[in-house]
Write a protein that binds this DNA or RNA. Structure first.
Length: 422
RNA sequence: GCGAUCGUAGCUCAGUUGGUUAGAGCGCCGGUUUGUGGUACCGGAGGUCGCGGGUUCGAACCCCGUCGAUCGCCCCA
């Protein structure tokens, strides 16, 4: 006879409860509200896709694809993957559902994503994001609107100590030329770079630019700058984005070394990052980016679609929730205390009646009769309504300071007791 | 994938140089008390000291492994 053990939760998953769950819901509710203001349409996406949806769009060599995806074969032998991000799946849906007819299409969604990473503060294997995408819009105004929405969302969440860090990666040609120049520049000093940067030199030279390693720092200042490689169109595009942001009142800083990890990004790239020394920076630790995204004009082609311009961003709900502060537990309008046994039917009926009047109500009718009132007091409910028997009849008494609630609770309960006493 | 710290009741933790039945507060359950029913007091339930090996006469405490958490690197939201 073996002892029963309780299975543990999967590493990197979370059971969100209490104040954390309230903060999580607050983030999602605020996002839903803001997204409507900007007329982004709600979409619901599958949690898994064919593996190639992600492999082809994110790039086979990216860390996400090469070592962080939850991939498995289904019973039909097909390779499927739990979504590590939203964009690729939405792009796929745009193509397979003929959503071109709605272009430019503004959509928003939220939900769980999965990445096999080492869990840390603000980083989980199952994590949650809110996401906004504009597909089929080549104009810089789309970038501006999207960023204005992100900015307003953060403000409405009460997060005021983060700033938009903005960069451009140029068009495909600009980006390639810059990349080649970076490889050439860093190859010359390869031996003096950190091991990690030596590896990055082959895989993702852009990443060397934001290396934190002291050995790399001396070479960063004189590294080739993207601005020198931008085509005329690319710089005009970036100029239009920045002036649009200024007009919309979105403050931003230029971040020349900001790059994106995934292959599909072009032109605008951005992250909202806590200001140095701010409360948000302290709350997030090393997971500094709270919202990030950019333009991905190349992505739909990589999935076999026609060349289609697009921009989008995503933000980690857990990270945002850490910044909105702990919201208080909210209290019930009424705590109904039944100081007698055998009144279960009355209790059930009265609770239903209270709730039908839109009063949030909690019932205390178990355990020590003497302590039921204690528990109701501690629950923090606005009105405590006590039912007990006096001279053979059930009587009720309401306690609390909120006159409006007091009246509506009393009204409902008087009726209930009158019926019960008949 | 790499490094560091940590893992004792439901929760927060204490546990002296390894030594008899592992403790506290809060919470929970029951009771007593109270002339403002949220107070105070008493009692009770609840622990394979993460898990598995090892060292030792003896381990919560030392060693190894493993799982998990936390912090950082990498990467990213």
């Amino acid at each position: 006879m073996s002892k029963k053990t309780t299975p543990q939760a999967i590493r990197g998953t979370q059971d969100i409860f209490g104040a954390d769950a309230e903060a999580f819901a607050f983030v999602v509710e605020t996002f839903e509200r803001v997204r409507r203001l900007y007329r982004f349409r709600r979409v619901e996406m599958p949690v898994f896709e064919k593996t190639e949806v992600f492999a082809r769009s994110l790039g086979e060599t990216t860390d996400v694809v090469s070592k962080e995806m939850y991939s498995f074969e289904d019973r039909g032998g097909e390779s499927l993957t739990l979504r590590p991000e939203f964009t690729a799946g939405i792009a796929r849906a745009y193509l397979t559902n003929g959503w071109q007819q709605y272009a430019p299409l503004k959509v928003a969604t939220h939900g769980p994503l999965f990445r096999y990473e080492r869990p840390q503060k603000g980083r989980y294997r199952q994590f949650h994001q809110i996401d906004a995408e504009v597909i089929g819009a080549a104009e810089p105004q789309a970038d501006v609107e999207l960023l204005a929405m992100a900015d307003q969302l953060l403000k409405e969440l009460g997060i005021n100590d983060v700033t938009l860090h903005l960069n451009t990666l140029g068009d495909a040609a600009s980006r390639e030329a810059w990349r080649a120049a970076l490889i050439e520049y860093f190859r010359a000093v390869k031996d003096q770079l950190s091991e990690e940067s030596q590896e990055r030199l082959e895989k993702n030279p852009l990443r060397i630019l934001d290396s934190k390693d002291l050995r790399d720092k001396p070479f960063l200042a004189d590294a080739p700058k993207i601005d020198a490689f931008l085509s005329e169109e690319a710089s005009a595009f970036f100029a239009a984005v920045t002036s649009g942001l200024d007009a919309a009142g979105v403050t931003w800083v230029r971040a020349e070394s900001l790059v994106r990890g995934l292959d599909y990004y072009r032109h605008t790239a951005f992250e909202f990052i806590p200001d140095e020394g701010s409360a948000s920076a302290a709350a997030l630790g090393s997971q500094s980016t709270v919202l990030g995204g950019g333009r991905y004009d190349g992505l739909l082609e990589s999935l076999g679609g026609a060349p289609t311009p697009a921009v989008g961003w995503a933000a980690g709900i857990e990270r945002l929730a850490m910044l909105v502060g702990t919201s208080e537990d909210d209290w019930a309008d009424v705590a109904l205390v039944i100081e007698e046994e055998g009144l279960e039917a009355l209790a059930a009926k009265a609770m239903r009646a209270l709730r039908e009047e839109a009063l949030s109500a909690e019932l205390f009718d178990t355990g020590s009769i003497r302590k039921r009132f204690d528990k109701a007091s501690k629950s923090g409910a606005s009105i405590i309504y006590v039912v007990r028997r006096q001279d053979g009849k059930l009587v009720g008494q309401a306690k609390g300071h909120d006159q409006g609630l007091w009246d509506s609770v009393t009204k409902v309960m008087e009726l209930q007791l009158a019926e019960a006493n008949r």
